[in-house]
Computed example of a mutant assay.
Amino acid sequence: MHTLIASPFLGQYLVLRPGHVKGVGIPETRYEELRAAVDVGRPAPSWLNDAVTAAWGTPLPAGDLGDLLLVRDPSPYGYGKASWEINLGCDHDCGFCYLGEKRFEGLEWNDKVRLLTMLRDAGVLWLQITGGEALIDRQFAAAYEYANDLGIMVQISTNGSQLHKTRMQELFARLRPYRLTVSLYGATAATYDAVTRNRGAWDRFSRGLDASREAGLPVRLNIVISDENAHEIDDMVRLAEDRWSFPYQVFSNMSPTIRGEASPLASQAAKHLKPRRVFTGCNAGHTFFHVDPHGIASICKIGRDPSVNLMTEGLTALPRLGNIAESLQLRTGGCSGCTKVGICRTCRPLAKLYQEAGDNRSLYCQHGGYGA
């Protein structure tokens, strides 16, 4: 397993250490120097050892540079980040889930390999593997290891239900993710199990977080607030700060499902609604994209239609996402002629889902009083 990755990234060049967010920017000339050194078997240049020591506090291990450093080739596609739902199946049944019905289905192993290879070839350096619940996919460990072998920096989004298992802790000790984003749904067994509709879920979750803290894994908590657990928000924050000492974010705004169903909105804790920041555009479809369990790529997790099927059309279809992204941001339907375009806090694809879910403007639109 390589110790370092050298890679192009959106017009820049980076040296990265798997399992760590921090990287080192280098000029193109030094990136090409590393490519040549690996190709002809030259030792590591002294500047690389100095950069590694400065960035991560330890010198470059002894050994052949080709064994220590993976140099990724440039990509003609211009993407740098992606997210992938390895499977939508989940062992929790939270009423506010934006995925709605979660069917356990996805690609077979050979197609997972093909998809991950396409992501690498598209230029993706940073990948979020999510679900459903990613860690319950029977091929998660193999897919995670293969992504690492390709020189992809992996973040995992999980409900934490599997982190107490020895095999998961051993996997992440051997191949450290650069981030584990774990959702927190309550501060007591009664509340947590009620929200997830899964008896014993709190016990498994808390043991997994304890094990992850002991192992020094890079966990970040997403504290999700609903009407069922809002009374424990202060206790959840205290758990994050005092018991586990993990960084955290608090999320309180529910959204419709990806199919425009309103069911998650019933779980909204109304007094905890927070105004979103003004939406000024994003790079979805241009430098970032999302892939569902069947290999269908869209601009993001929200704007899923139109899309391109990577498994049937191949990588050459991916650049169509740029035009799709531009078309999805056009203000049509309930947003046509809006007088608050310049201060709108909701991206157009998300507004469309709210409109399909019943157009309760108080939840997303400043005309409806939201964020006034």
Rank of each mutant, 00 (worst) to 15 (best):
M1H: 10
M1Q: 08
Q12L: 15
G19E: 04
G19Q: 04
G19V: 01
H20I: 00
H20D: 12
P27K: 06
R30H: 14
E32R: 15
A36M: 12
A37W: 03
G41Y: 02
P43E: 06
P43T: 09
L48N: 03
N49V: 14
D50L: 14
A51L: 13
T53S: 14
A54D: 11
A54E: 14
G57M: 11
T58L: 13
P61L: 09
A62W: 04
G63P: 10
P76V: 06
G78M: 06
H92K: 00
G100L: 09
R103Y: 13
F104G: 00
F104H: 13
G106S: 10
G106P: 01
D111A: 08
L115Q: 07
L116A: 12
R120F: 08
D121F: 01
I129F: 04
T130K: 03
A134P: 05
Q139D: 15
F140Q: 11
L150P: 03
Q155R: 08
I156M: 03
S161H: 11
Q162M: 15
L163E: 06
H164A: 13
K165D: 04
R167Y: 09
R174V: 07
L175I: 12
P177Y: 02
S183P: 02
Y185D: 10
G186Q: 04
T188I: 09
D193R: 08
N198D: 11
N198E: 11
A201E: 06
E214Q: 14
A215P: 06
L217Q: 07
L221T: 13
E228N: 01
A230M: 10
E232K: 05
E232S: 05
D235T: 09
M236F: 04
L239G: 01
L239T: 07
E241G: 00
S245Y: 00
P247C: 06
Q249I: 07
I258H: 09
A262S: 15
A262R: 14
A262F: 05
A266C: 00
A269T: 07
A270P: 00
L273I: 13
P275M: 12
V278T: 15
V278I: 15
F279G: 01
N283Y: 13
H286C: 03
F288H: 15
I296N: 07
R304K: 14
P306F: 07
P306C: 06
V308E: 05
L310T: 12
T316L: 08
L318D: 06
R320C: 02
G322N: 05
I324K: 03
E326P: 00
Q329V: 09
R331C: 05
C344G: 08
R348F: 01
L350F: 03
L353A: 02
Y354D: 05
A357S: 07
G358R: 02
R361M: 12
Q366T: 14
H367P: 00
G368V: 06
G369P: 10
G369M: 08
A372Q: 15
